[in-house]
């Protein structure tokens, strides 16, 4: 009997399919369920000149630290806890290294929905009267309703262009080898929309299980991705670290603070890269565990 495609791949195999200059979407939100193992794999690759679409967090920060971002489309960039502002994104911005198309948070959702429905734009109120217009210039236009109001005036709204993506990277809690995947916890974020807006859709999951186990493990409503929305599945336990991941784990606040502190000087960043970002994902996870153990020991010593 013919069987469904097995889509399991490794992180580096997936990133091997990326090309410089692509437009990529990164799922999650701020410092929440970000596809960080994929981001680390992109750092290991020679891919560059990326256009990134995201509700930004340390994913965008890390890509900026390696000079991989040419242009960024985002509603915000936040670490969600102190120091809140991502230091590498801030550096890239104040150095003028990236061109930005900053927009209202709701415009990101709207642009992904337009792409998902293969529409050139969707009208939205958000953006009118704000400097979002200045960030975008001629790339963001308005559209006037063909249906006037009772008083004869017609609404002119932002025509949010489709955020069509060459590739999307998302991280979910559980999936099968065919691309069915589920989130757990309180929020799906927008990961289904990223997948529907993209040509190539890559999902990493905490654990790959048989389909039957997947659908038994979560309510139907949590089955966010189906097979039509996924091209490759990577098993990446702790793959959202140091961001939080629903019921799987919370944010590693200590490590995120260490990341943000390390960005302050070339020396401290080199040390961070040497310790955490110069080997494989397994090396990273081992170093992270060591970091947690040593900071615990340090606390006990106090």
């Amino acid at each position: 009997m013919a069987s469904k495609r097995d889509k399991t791949k490794s992180l580096d195999e997936v990133v091997g399919e990326l090309r410089s200059g692509m437009t990529i979407g990164l799922g999650g939100w701020g410092s929440r369920r970000k596809p960080m193992a994929f981001v680390r794999a992109i750092l290991r690759s020679d891919v560059k000149d990326l256009t990134v679409v995201t509700y930004g967090g340390p994913d965008l920060g890390l890509l900026c630290s390696a000079g991989k971002v040419k242009k960024a489309y985002y509603g915000f960039v936040s670490l969600d806890s102190a120091p809140f502002y991502d230091p590498w994104f801030a550096k890239a911005r104040t150095a003028g290294e990236i061109e930005v198309r900053e927009m209202d948070e709701g415009m990101v959702k709207c642009g992904l929905e337009a792409a998902a429905a293969r529409l050139p734009f969707l009208p939205i109120r958000a953006g009118l009267g704000s400097d979002v217009r200045s960030f975008w210039g001629d790339e963001l236009k308005t559209v006037t309703s063909p249906y006037p109001e009772a008083d004869g005036r017609s609404e002119t709204l932002i025509a949010m262009p489709a955020l069509n993506l060459d590739a999307s990277f998302v991280h979910l809690n559980l999936g099968d080898k065919h691309g069915n995947a589920a989130y757990n916890g309180v929020d799906p974020y927008f990961d289904d929309l990223y997948c529907m807006a993209a040509e190539k859709r890559y999902v990493s999951v905490e654990r790959i299980v048989e389909t039957e186990e997947l659908v038994k493990s979560v309510p139907l409503q949590n089955l966010l991705l189906n097979r039509m929305m996924v091209d490759a599945v990577v098993e990446a336990p702790n793959g959202a670290h140091f961001t939080l991941a629903g019921e799987s784990y919370g944010r590693d606040e200590k490590f995120q603070r260490h990341y943000a502190e390390s960005a302050k000087t070339p020396e401290s960043w080199q040390a961070f890269v040497d310790t955490f970002l110069s080997g494989s994902e397994e090396d990273y996870q081992a170093a992270v565990k060591k970091f947690a153990d040593s900071s615990k020991a340090g606390e006990q010593a106090k």
Partner: peptide, 13 residues
Amino acid sequence: QMFGVRGAPGNTI
């Protein structure tokens, strides 16, 4: 650099 515009344009309009 701070947060970016966040939801402020959509909220206010």
